[in-house]
Amino acid sequence: MVKILRVGVLLLVLSAIWATPAPAHSSNDDGRQLSVGRGETALTVGATFIFNPETGKSEPRPGASPADEDPNQYMADTHCRADGPDTKDPGCDALDCPATTPGGPEGTPVIWKEAPKAITNPGWTNWIPITGPTCLYDAEPQNVLADIAARILNDFRQLPINPGNLQAQPFPHTLKGGPTNFYTTATEQTFDVTILGQAIHLTATPANHTYTFGDGTTLGPTPAAGYPIPEAEWLTTETRTSHSYTQTGNYPATITTSFTGTYSVNNGPPLPINGTLNITTPATTIHVWKTQRALVADTCQQNPNSWGCPGTEPTH
């Protein structure tokens, strides 16, 4: 009889659990509430902070120490904007963000993401959102795209862009009066950086080149990057970037490449950077020789010190 009563109690307890309504919010392993709705005005982060998705700011919960600092950082992903890549998201097509005051600014539909502050470049696309589409009204985050656009050229010019190298054929010795083929190895390069808390993808593209041959003559600016040619054509083929030296000597040749750039914010569309970055390569010394003809009595195999043989003093 006692066993039957215990079973009955157990059944009653299970029945009460199954009858409990589902909560309006779900929780992750650390107890933080994750909202599944839209238009939230507050979001509990852990047990200490309250995050406001309308302003992008977190504050200590009532009763917590004001000196406490939120260990997390937040990013407003504007993927619901009209030109964004995810406008087909079910939460985007029905979310309006009207002004909260007469004549005030409209809000911006955003998805908030969270990452620890200890991570300097969290790669926001890999972090799970902490809200569904919601409206952002704070003036400072709304201007983040304009703030990035105002400084993007300076950040672009600080990138460690590789200017490539100036190549010459023949090299290091070429002939007076003959064509010397020049070309550059500069290539397109990409960079991922964080600016104002946003994930920025930059692309640097070589657009124009100025060849300085070291004898007082230049070529360019020109989009021609040049190209290598077979060794059998070095002394006979003249390319768009070839140069002929009129005097013997040693000449420091350089190339200045002008890079243009584009950038995208949080995987958004590529935007042009209004300005260029010009980088000049270190000098490459070209030794220009002249040719002479002479009759000799024996070959270099017969007499290695004969005129014109390898290792003998060349005549400039």
Rank of each mutant, 00 (worst) to 15 (best):
G220W: 02
D86F: 10
I50D: 04
P160Y: 04
T180K: 00
T87L: 01
D147K: 14
P85E: 06
I119R: 01
Y137P: 04
P85Y: 05
T291E: 15
R240D: 13
G214H: 01
L202I: 15
N278L: 04
I161K: 11
G216M: 07
G8R: 12
T108P: 04
E106F: 00
T256A: 15
G56D: 05
P21K: 01
F51W: 09
T248G: 14
P71I: 13
L34C: 10
A232H: 03
Y251L: 05
T246D: 09
T131C: 03
T299R: 06
T280S: 06
T134G: 04
T78I: 03
G261T: 06
A139S: 12
N274M: 00
P230R: 03
P252I: 09
G216S: 09
V2S: 08
T185N: 00
Q198N: 14
G91Y: 00
L202V: 14
I255D: 03
R32G: 13
P23G: 01
Q158F: 03
T210Q: 12
I128D: 01
N126W: 05
A118K: 12
Q142K: 15
T280A: 07
A76S: 11
G56F: 05
P60S: 05
T48W: 04
G104Y: 07
A294Y: 13
V45D: 11
Y251F: 15
I111Q: 11
T260D: 10
G107D: 03
T246K: 13
T184D: 04
N121A: 15
H201T: 15
A99P: 10
G37T: 09
F51L: 09
P109Q: 03
A64Q: 14
T291D: 13
C135G: 07
V265N: 05
I255R: 02
S35Q: 07
P179Q: 02
A204R: 08
Y227C: 04
N162K: 07
T180C: 05
R157T: 15
L43G: 00
S65V: 02
F156M: 04
G216V: 06
D70M: 11
N165V: 11
P223D: 13
V144F: 00
V9Y: 10
G216A: 07
T236F: 00
T203S: 12
D298F: 06
R6Y: 12
N28V: 06
I4E: 14
D83C: 02
A24C: 02
V13H: 05
Y137D: 09
D89I: 04
A139Q: 02
G178S: 14
Q247G: 04
A115R: 09
R293V: 11
L43C: 06
Q292F: 14
K57T: 12
D96Q: 12
T299N: 05
R151N: 13
I255P: 01
G249I: 06
G275S: 10
C309I: 10
N278H: 02
R81T: 10
P85Q: 05
